[in-house]
Design a protein around this nucleic acid. Structure first.
Length: 281
DNA sequence: AGCCAGGCGGTCA
DNA sequence: TGACCGCATGGC
């Protein structure tokens, strides 16, 4: 059991904001599986302490929850207008999470043209089927080898639809060492993005999510349909054509600066919770 | 019931 | 760097 000082932190927002899919809240404790281990987490707000029960090393979890990110500084840096100001004020304490690349990559490939409840279910089914049994109803995220060898067994199609083939293929690339999951750590944002997009099924948006959530490339600004709507309504409707989202992504970086990844996640979460646009400000 | 989902890749002009 | 389509299927 670890007690970690965690000022400027909100565990609920952090785990609920749609960046991770394997955490569930039950009786004020969050329960999840990270890097093949069960983690139980409780936020003692009075004492600004994060209480964690897990076999994982304390420093790993500290890094996972990005507790070294200087949130007040990041807020002051991205606080460019009333709309983002509202988001960072209301949901202050939401932190990005530094995920394992393999799980993040597959999860976001699976997320294409889907929705969060469905993504969670699909990952849960897949883990139950192909991951290790950790006890108490927890299962690890399937390893590349398990996913690579299951396409013809109909099992793997855990309601993944057209995504199944791409995911199995990506797993095969990792198994065959055609794709090196550690390589993007050493690359800059642009190179790492290009490298990720050599995988079929990874385009601009999925690549940006993986770069932001797993490879610590804070300058990534993922633009999905929600962020696209926000940008159009509150910032500029001048982005046209099939590459509109890619243009918005570049705009996001230049507008919000080096911590635009944080800005993106706050905007995304605000819209997801509050639904219809136009109720804010 | 019917639209849309944390998209991508391909095609046609 | 424009406009459209098919992909599979669940949420709401």
């Amino acid at each position: 059991m670890y007690n970690i000082p965690a000022p400027y932190f909100n565990l609920d927002y952090t785990l609920d904001c749609g960046q991770v899919f394997r955490w569930n809240l039950e009786d004020e404790w969050w329960h999840g599986v990270v890097k093949g281990e069960i983690v139980h987490a409780f936020h003692d707000r009075e004492n600004e302490t994060l209480i964690l029960d897990s076999k994982l090393p304390k420093d790993y979890l500290h890094t996972y929850f990005r507790l070294d990110d200087d949130l007040p500084f990041i807020f002051s840096d991205i606080d460019k207008d009333p709309y983002i100001h509202e988001a960072i004020s209301k949901y202050s304490g939401m932190r990005l999470i530094l995920q394992e690349p393999w799980e993040c990559l597959i999860s976001y490939m699976l997320a294409t043209a889907s929705n969060i409840p469905r993504i969670k279910k699909s990952i849960e089914r897949m883990s139950r089927l192909l991951g290790d049994d950790l006890g108490d109803g927890f299962y690890s995220f399937p390893k590349p080898k398990s996913l690579a060898s299951c396409y013809n067994e109909e099992l793997c199609e855990c309601k993944m639809g057209f995504r199944a083939r791409r995911i199995v293929q990506a797993a095969q690339m990792v198994v065959d060492k055609e794709f090196d999951l550690t390589a993007p750590y050493e690359m800059d944002y642009a190179d790492a993005k290009q490298y990720l997009m050599t995988i079929e099924g990874i385009g601009d948006k999925v690549a940006d999510c993986v770069l932001l959530f797993a490879y610590d490339k804070m300058e990534a600004f993922p633009v999905d349909t929600h962020v696209e709507k926000i940008v159009r309504q509150y910032y500029s409707d001048s982005f046209k054509g099939p590459y509109a989202k890619a243009k918005m992504s570049k705009w996001g970086h230049s507008y919000f600066g080096k911590y635009c990844g944080y800005a993106q996640q706050y905007l995304f979460y605000q819209l997801r919770l509050e639904g219809a646009l136009g109720t804010g400000i």
